[in-house]
Design a protein around this nucleic acid. Structure first.
Length: 571
RNA sequence: CGGGGUGUAGCGCAGUCCGGUUAGCGCGUUACGUUCGGGACGUAAAAGUCGGAAGUUCGAAUCUUCUCACCCCGACCA
């Protein structure tokens, strides 16, 4: 492709509204053009990169025995009601939904478990037909609260989603491992550094899941991992063993302490001198279920924070929000800041984080404005509530797996997520097969997603410098960029000839034949990140060119033969 | 959903507080000439429903009301 003909319009300025480097570079180069919030145009060069990513994914999926299909983007409400997710997704306000002229309610698919289950149940009736793995690479929609960070969080995006169907848990394990290995090959071929972390399965559901995280400071997800063993988890899921703390054994009776307008843990520490870890805070949540609501009071050590994802999973509700000032007032009889476990309204379900079990002689709210209890003991003053792991793990706490090393925190971009779904969908949607004994059993499913378009952002976050993008060979829109110095015929003729012969040899070549200055061409070359650059300059008439890699910029003089040898080893 | 901000030429902005001829500037675009080893220069030119609607006024980019879009922050504390 000659750049004089290419639909490529680089600019000199960074876009004003971009705040991560991948978005800045993509939009400065206009490889990516914003349409409106959360929606983008992919211009031809970026579309080539996207296609390459799609191809790598398809090749590895096919190689792993999955078969590619295409499913409808627009789906009927009835299908989503079968699985029970219409309400979940509507409640979370992440689903685009609309009605057609006949008033039939539909949604723009955020994911396709329902559709694929529907397709499979039409034809698969026997365990002998299993396993089956189907996948597609299709446009997905999520009505993001706040689309941001360029291609990282968009309302419309391209995702590869695969679904496995098995007749046994062992079969699911095999399908899951097969997909996991395929994912490892995919990210290796694309050339990204990643961590596989344990994850929460969220609204998709299922028993276990892992995420593929591209490590980058700009990532939206927090990862905790253990440098000693292989443990790594999304913060939403991560467990930890707390570092030991010293408790004071006050060995005293429960006292009601006047704490005027002292509400937060921090204020209480200052006021009483009691360490935060010897306090238990009680936090009130409103739990939202499909047809009802209820309240929960959660007890957790004063120096720790609640992990709302864990709490949501514990209660199995659709959503949860912290109770309002009014609700807290009517449920506890006190203002915000004085909630405690005693004399709570009977409508409230009380639970505790495991961290509270070893705390005694602690401070907590007593549901009376301006008062806290101190020296409270479990067993003496109150019974331990039901306990669960509800805390947010932190960097520096001990690995829950090997218990040897402190956890380390990194940020990551979630580009893949694999789930063992089990029978959540097949049961509800009656996707059944006959097993060896003649009994009807629900198929056991797995689902496996890759954020195809998000990979572009992640790749740039990991591979760029001050001048622009540095594409990995496997996903670069073109391999080679030829640049001339000047526009005089001897040089341009030679460059044109080189362009033709490399293109004929099957290389993907850009030729910058525009009538702009050398510096201008070089700036664009850096920006769009083509991996190999060939400059036809002073020595071009002697058949000598200057060859360099975008990544290191080291220049080497070569004739045509050595260029071809060089490219053969590199590509 | 709450708070803040911005909409003026393709892009980035000034002008708005304090209403007043023909709405400016930089980049880009077009033409011609000189340039061409890291975003060249000169001369000339084209390009605007001032986000939209209604209102106040002799007169509105500017004031008022409504509205739309976009951006940023927050959605906590107990």
């Amino acid at each position: 492709m000659k750049l004089s003909k290419a639909f490529l319009f680089t600019t000199k300025e960074y876009p004003k509204d971009a705040d991560v480097i991948s978005d800045k570079l993509l939009r400065k180069s206009n490889l990516l053009v914003k349409s409106h919030a959360g929606f983008f145009y992919f211009t031809p060069l970026l579309n080539r990169t996207l296609k390459k990513i799609r191809n790598i994914i398809s090749e590895e999926m096919d190689g792993a025995g999955a078969q590619e299909v295409l499913m409808p983007i627009l789906m009927k409400k009835e299908l989503w009601e079968e699985s029970g997710r219409w309400d979940t997704y509507l409640n979370a306000e992440i689903m685009f939904h609309l009605k057609n002229r006949k008033n039939v309610e539909m949604c723009l698919g955020p994911t396709h478990e329902e559709a694929v289950t529907d397709l499979v149940r039409k034809f698969i009736t026997s365990y002998k037909q299993l396993p089956v793995i189907l996948y597609q690479q299709n446009t997905k929609f999520r009505d993001e609260i706040r689309p941001r960070f360029g291609l990282m969080r968009t309302s419309e995006f391209i995702m590869k989603d695969a679904y496995s169907f098995d007749s046994s848990e062992e079969g699911l394990d095999i399908s899951y491992r097969t997909m996991r290995e395929a994912y490892r090959r995919i990210f290796k071929r694309i050339g990204l550094e990643y961590i596989i972390v344990q994850a929460d399965s969220g609204a998709i559901g299922g028993s276990g899941s892992e995420e593929f995280m591209i490590t980058a400071d700009s990532g939206e997800d927090t990862i905790l991992y253990c440098p000693e063993c292989r443990y790594a988890a999304n913060l939403e899921k991560a467990g930890s063993v707390l570092n030991p703390v010293e408790f004071n054994d006050y060995n005293k009776e429960l006292i009601k302490l006047h704490t005027p307008n002292i509400r937060t843990v921090e204020e209480l520490v200052g006021f009483t001198g009691i360490p935060a870890h010897q306090m238990i805070k009680t936090i009130i949540f409103r739990l939202i279920y499909k047809d009802s609501e209820k309240f929960a009071a959660v007890m957790i050590r004063g120096d720790l924070e609640i992990n709302e994802v864990k709490l949501l999973n514990y209660f199995g509700c659709l959503d949860m929000i912290k109770a309002t000032v009014e609700e807290i007032g009517s449920l506890t009889g006190a203002e915000v800041g004085f909630a405690g476990p005693f004399n709570l309204n009977s409508k409230i379900q009380l639970v505790g984080d495991r961290s509270i079990a070893e705390v005694n002689y602690f401070l907590c709210g007593c549901n009376e404005t301006d008062y806290h209890n101190i020296n409270v003991c479990f067993g003496r003053d109150m019974e331990l509530p039901p306990l669960a792991d509800l805390k947010t793990a932190r960097e520096g706490e001990i690995c829950p797996e090997c218990r040897k090393s402190a956890l380390v925190q990194k940020m990551g971009i979630e580009v893949g997520h694999i789930f063992k779904l089990g029978t959540k969908y097949s049961e509800k949607m009656r996707a059944l097969v006959t097993d060896e004994s003649g009994a009807e059993i629900p198929m056991i499913m797995g689902c496996y997603g890759i954020g195809t378009s998000r990979i572009i952002s992640a790749a740039i976050e990991q591979n760029h410098d001050g001048n622009g993008i540095i594409w990995q060979n496997s996903i670069a829109p073109y391999h080679i960029l030829i640049i001339t110095v000047g526009k005089e015929p001897p040089v341009t003729d030679i460059a044109e000839e080189l362009y033709k012969s490399l293109t004929e040899k099957g290389y993907e070549v850009l030729y910058d034949d525009r009538e702009v200055s050398f510096g201008f061409k070089m700036k664009d070359a850096d920006l769009i990140g083509v991996p190999y650059r060939i400059v036809a300059g002073r020595k071009a008439s002697e058949g000598i060119f200057e060859v360099s890699k975008r990544r290191d910029g080291i220049k080497q003089e070569m004739d045509i033969d050595s260029i071809i040898t060089f490219l053969e080893t590199e590509l």
